[in-house]
């Protein structure tokens, strides 16, 4: 098993936090993981993306251009990476901010109104955790409880944020069960 994930969005959307939490949770699950944040001389609030690879054997490249999964938090990121998804791969799309239709064929698409759902829970800053819940629920790549524990650990000194993040994480799971655990794109496996 070797799975490559790209998480992309604006700076400030918690992209890097999400990538790191998946890495921590994978390590806790005795899997191999790499997390690589794309860094550069970018301004605050610019684009942000990170690559996460999870595997059950030694990981070679921490950066891939053929991705199993993409979590896209905003439109520019989605457009930039859309065609890096492999056939039968999955998009997790923040449909609150991404209004364009997916052109890539043979793709699973999970539309999650993460920003809106997060605002209903507490504030927009937990949108990333709604997406994380949806991602874990749909892919089952990691155990739900281990990820929840990891979120709790990550915010050890910020109990309020931990609480909100876990509620948002659960909301992501609920969204996937509402979708019957399936992606919802017309062009899926055409």
């Amino acid at each position: 098993m070797e799975n490559s994930l790209l998480i992309a969005g604006f700076g400030g959307q918690g992209i890097m936090t999400l990538g790191q939490i998946i890495g921590y949770a994978a390590t806790k699950s005795h899997l191999k993981a790499t997390y690589y944040p794309s860094y550069g001389a970018e301004q605050r609030g610019g684009t942000a993306n990170c690559a996460v690879v999870i595997a059950d054997q030694e990981i070679g490249s921490p950066v891939r251009n053929k991705l199993n999964h993409i979590i896209a938090m905003n439109e520019p990121s989605f457009k930039r990476f859309e065609y890096n998804l492999i056939d039968q791969g999955s998009f997790f799309i923040n449909s609150s901010l991404i209004k364009i239709t997916v052109k890539k064929e043979k793709a699973n698409v999970y539309n999650i109104a993460a920003s809106e759902l997060a605002m209903d829970i507490a504030n927009i800053h937990s949108a990333n955790f709604v997406m994380l819940g949806a991602y874990i629920a749909a892919t089952k790549i990691l155990d739900k409880n281990i990820v929840a524990e990891t979120i709790d650990d990550y915010f050890t000194h910020k109990k309020e944020i931990a609480k909100i993040s876990l509620i948002a994480f659960d909301e992501g799971f609920r969204q996937i069960s509402k979708l019957g655990g399936k992606g919802c794109h017309d062009t899926t496996f055409k």
Binding site: A33, T34, Y35, P37
Partner: peptide, 10 residues
């Protein structure tokens, strides 16, 4: 190099 420095791994 910058990848080894910036990446996280167990």
């Amino acid at each position: 190099d910058g990848v080894i420095g910036a990446m996280m791994e167990a």
